[in-house]
Amino acid sequence: MGALKSLKEEYAIIDANFLQFCASHGIFSVEDFLVHDVYTLVASTEQLSNSYRLKQGINQLLSIIETCHQPWMNGLMLLEDRKQNKRCLSTGCESFDMLLRGGLHEGHVTELVGPSSSGKTQVCFQAASNVAMKLGSVVFIDSGNSFSPTRIQQIVAYISGSAENKINGILQQAMRNIDCHAVFDIYALLNVLHQLKLKLKSQTGYQVRLIIVDSISSLIAPILGGSNAQGHALMVSVGYLLKELADRHNIALVVTNHMVGGEGGTLKPALGESWKNVPHVRLQLSQDHARNIYAVQILRHPYMASGRNANFMIP
C-alpha cells in the first residue's frame, strides 16, 4: 500500500488522468481508496468522457488490493503449516516444558508475568541459553540492562553438565547465537523490531528462533495513561508487530510483564485490558522464598485449560 503516484510507473492504466480523477474524490493513497465505496466511484465516472479508462483503473486498483491482505487459507493448509513450521522450543527446564507440552511454541507470543524477583528474567536467560546452544539464533531485547553474559555462561555450563572451564566451544557457539539489543524506549523497540522484520524478509538464510523482550512493560507503561490515545495506539502496534513476526517467520516470542495492585489489593498483570488481547499464552510466575522454588501457572492458553501449574528450579 502507499501513494497512488508510486503505482504510476508499474501500471500503465494508472496515469495522470486517473490520478486527477482520484484526487477530485480526495483519494491520494491506496488507503484512501479503501475507505471509499467502489460502486459510488464507478457511478461517478459515468458523466466523464474517459469513463471506460477510469473504470479500468478502478479495476486495476481492486486487483492491487487483492495482494494487500493476507491470503485466505483453509483449515488443512493452516494445520499443515503448523505441523511443518511451528515447533516447540525447549526452555531447558523440564517441568516448565512439561507444563507447556514441549516448551515455547513458535508462532505464539508468550507473556511471562509476575512480581519482581519471581524468576521472569531467569526463565528468559535459561530459554535463551538453551535455544542458542542447541537450536539457533536468539534476539534478546533488553530494556533494563539485565542481560548478563556471565549468567549465560553459568547456565550453559549447567545445561551441558560440564565444568565452566571446559565448555569453551559450546559457550562460543551459544554466545554467537545471542544477539542482544539494549532498548530504553518504545520507539527504539519499534525500530529494532522493524529492522528485524526487514532483515528476515530480505536476507535469505537469516533465521531467528526466539525473540525475548525483557521487559516489555517497562517500555509501554510510561506512555500509557492520560487522555491521549497515542500511548495505546503504540502499544497495540507493538502487539501486532510481535504477532506478525511470530507467525510469518515462525519465531517464538517471549515478553515479560510486571504486576500492579488491582481492586482489593490483589496483584494483576500490568498494561491493562487492551494488552490482554496481545499474547497467545500468559504465564504467571511466583517464587517461594523459603524453599527457593519457583512456580508457574497458566493464566491463558489457546488450547490448554487455565489454572494448571508446575514448580521449577533455577540453576
Binding site: L34, C68, N74, G75
Partner: peptide, 26 residues
Amino acid sequence: CMKRFSYTRCYDSFEFLAALKVLHHK
C-alpha cells in the same frame, strides 16, 4: 471438514478493508 474452514488474518484495519472489498470475488 477442515477444507470448509477458511481463514485469514488482518494486521491492521486496511488489511481488513482490503479483505472485505475483494471477498466477493473469492
